[in-house]
Design a protein around this nucleic acid. Structure first.
Length: 266
DNA sequence: ATGGTAGCCCTGCTA
């Protein structure tokens, strides 16, 4: 079972490249972020033609998250729920569904803009809400995977230049502490299970100043999985080819291969 | 070199 996550930075602008990628990577489940679409404009039929069922949560021209699956989609939820005081109210940043026996969530964590801003403070609260939501909807013994654009680089190996990033969002101790709390709850970083020591492998590069070609990026697109999923990880990788060529997203897709066989006839 | 690019819908805002 192959599960992928990809911040596409506008599905309208990226549909052709996403379809091209689906055709050769053939993931079973894909978490998309930044579709930048309202629900009414999501191309369910185009993905259906490629064999994927899809669910989407989008409020308009910003944010927007989706899940594509060719192993079924059931029990869909959108957002944290009505009883939670969302610090980014009205923004579509979380959707979940059960696909092929695994509960999968697609997340788009707020950027935070600047550590001195109130956007950053609300980013931390949003991550707290995600932690509470996680504990409410699943146990560490469930097959559960949260994948997406976390807008946090978990440690210094995930950063092209610690010196140049100092004082910026994505690398602050408070943000990293929020990810550590989720790992303490029961998540493992699927990429790190396969590549425990390597550095210099990133999932996002700024469009500006030739950052991609200079290798100046961050690993902020993460797949966090509970033990029943993490124990089945056989491979994980980012697809840098999908960041090349004409009109790429600023993010590469990241995927994980699991030793979980889906019986589609069951 | 406080630059640079891409995508949204007004030509500033978000990343």
């Amino acid at each position: 079972m192959r599960i992928a996550t990809w911040n596409v930075n506008s599905l309208n602008a990226r549909q052709e490249r996403v379809e091209e990628w689906l055709a050769y990577a053939r993931p079973d489940v894909v978490c998309l972020q930044e579709t930048k679409l309202p629900d009414a404009k999501f191309p369910h039929l185009s993905f259906g033609a490629l064999g994927y069922d899809s669910v989407h949560f989008g409020e308009g021209r910003w944010n927007g998250v989706a899940i594509l699956s060719r192993v079924g989609i059931a029990d869909v939820t959108r957002g944290f729920g009505d009883d939670v005081d969302d610090p980014y109210p009205g923004e579509a940043r979380l959707i979940s569904a059960v696909c092929g026996g695994v509960k999968v969530a697609s997340v788009y964590v707020p950027n935070g803009r600047d550590p001195a801003s109130e956007f950053y403070e609300r980013k931390l609260v949003w991550l707290d809400c995600l932690t509470e939501w996680t504990a409410r909807v699943a146990a560490p013994t469930d097959r559960f995977l949260v994948a997406g654009d976390w807008n946090v680089a978990p440690d210094d190996r995930d950063v092209w230049s610690v010196a140049k990033m100092a004082g910026s969002t994505h690398v602050t101790p408070a943000e990293r502490d929020r990810l550590a709390r989720l790992r303490d709850w029961g998540f493992a970083d699927c990429f790190r299970l396969v590549h425990p020591e390597v550095d210099g492998l990133y999932s996002w590069w700024d469009y500006r100043a030739g950052c991609f070609h200079k290798g100046e990026g961050l690993r902020i697109d993460l797949l966090y999985a509970t033990e029943p999923v993490a124990s089945q990880v056989r491979w994980a990788c980012m697809d840098r080819n999908a960041r090349k060529g004409s009109q790429p997203s600023d993010h590469a897709p990241v995927f994980v291969d699991l030793e979980i066989t889906i019986d589609l006839t069951a």
